[in-house]
Design a protein around this nucleic acid. Structure first.
Lengths: 234, 234
DNA sequence: AAATGTTAGATGTCAGACATCTTACAGTTA
DNA sequence: TAACTGTAAGATGTCTGACATCTAACATTT
């Protein structure tokens, strides 16, 4: 476990207070001196924490006036927005919205990939599906998830769109944990194998619309799985 | 013009050197002391600059070892990735990829909005289209662009997906300038008016698939317009 | 009433010091 | 020889105190 530096702790605590509503958007946060006293750190440490929040467009620093909280829709950090959006009973809603976002990016990337993917990569896709089948047979969840992720990563890369990958990375981090949970259910594994097979075949046909449709069905099923798992939480 | 602080300047210069290839991904960046000497600023200033790059996942700082450049696909800043991807003769390719990304998000948001948009918002959409028509008649480009942007922003908000808006904000900043250029061509204005009318009508019918399709056609046209303008640059 | 000067409070930058972590290397020991 | 240990160099982490500069509000002067 990576021990967090003081700067990280201060930034986290400050973000927590912002999300809790202590400093609503448009208002100013306490001055650097006041914060350094409250968190019992030096002013430089507070400044570095502020810099990290400023780089994520959560705060706007105005020299001579103070430091202000930006409205949520200007925040550039998916993780921070997720934390804010998951407050209260909104966690389920936030999860659904994340999947919706993933659906947009993955179906779009799949459509692009259909016209650009190489023969070698298509063979690799079928290889990953085979790996998923094998893992399913021996009930090796870790191997199953690994092949699953590799499958999707390959399509992302095959889309040859750098920006899609950039936007997808934070999503990947956020959804990683839940993916392992859903993949633990054998029935869901079977569904996923079928969908992946269809996607690979669609890409092999080089049809953008068919590829997009195949990925869309897969995403739709993922969303249903999530809803079922979230709603029947023990 | 906002004067940049020294921290911003150092961060920019360092990012420039990274993009130029002075410090390839995986390699380490010079130590804080060396950088403070090179840029003729104090070590604290260098540290704050590094913190901003670290918050964007461009750098990884490891205590006792050094500071390292992350691979491009881990960068969390669309702007930074755009700068890196536009190096050399890649600017046109980067522009196309940005539109592809915008297409994914806007068509997805439009599809979601169809099931969630209010009657009042639909009326507002038709109002924006009317404003575009009026601006087109008197050749008021600024007013045209403003109504255009308001139209798309409204759909984004109507999708009720916070994360889409978050990812779209940086895209918006990047594409804003080019939008003004394309909107200056009368023929393109006429096309856009027709597409916006179709989108509003599709949303009014509350059909997700039809709404998505209407927005997709609009995005396709935008992409074509961009290609024509980029390729025939004077 | 308008222009000007003053001042308090905020962020920006600097200098120097010490703490702590990582790594490499030399030396010690079994 | 091989494994352990101590030491030192170099990196980042943090602290203290100081001064600079910008902003906004208030007081003063014209």
């Amino acid at each position: 476990m990576a021990r967090k530096s003081l700067v990280g702790v201060v930034a986290d605590e400050l973000l927590d207070r912002i999300i809790a509503g202590d400093f609503p958007p448009g208002s100013s946060v306490p001055g650097e001196l006041e914060l350094s006293a409250r968190h019992e750190v030096s002013r430089m440490t507070v400044r570095e924490a502020m810099k990290t929040l400023e780089a994520q467009r959560i705060l706007s620093v105005e020299r001579g006036r103070g430091t202000f909280v930006n409205p949520l829709n200007r925040w550039a950090s998916l993780e921070a927005v997720l934390r804010a959006a998951s407050e209260g009973q909104n966690e389920a809603a936030a999860s659904v919205q994340l999947i919706e976002l993933r659906r947009m990016l993955e179906t779009g990337a799949c459509e692009l990939a259909a016209a650009r993917i190489s023969d070698a990569d298509i063979q690799a896709l079928f290889g990953h599906v085979a790996a998923m089948r094998a893992a399913h047979k021996v009930n090796d969840i870790a191997a199953f998830v690994e092949a699953d992720l590799a499958f999707h990563d390959l399509i992302l890369r095959a889309s040859e769109n750098v920006f899609v990958a950039v936007l997808f990375a934070p999503l990947h981090r956020v959804l990683e944990k839940r993916r392992a949970e859903t993949s633990a259910v054998p029935t869901i594994q079977e569904h996923a194998i079928g969908h992946h097979q269809n996607i690979a075949e669609a890409l092999e046909s080089r049809s953008p619309s068919r590829s997009r449709e195949a990925m869309d069905l897969h995403m739709q099923q993922t969303l249903d799985d999530l809803k079922n798992l979230v709603l029947e939480a023990p």
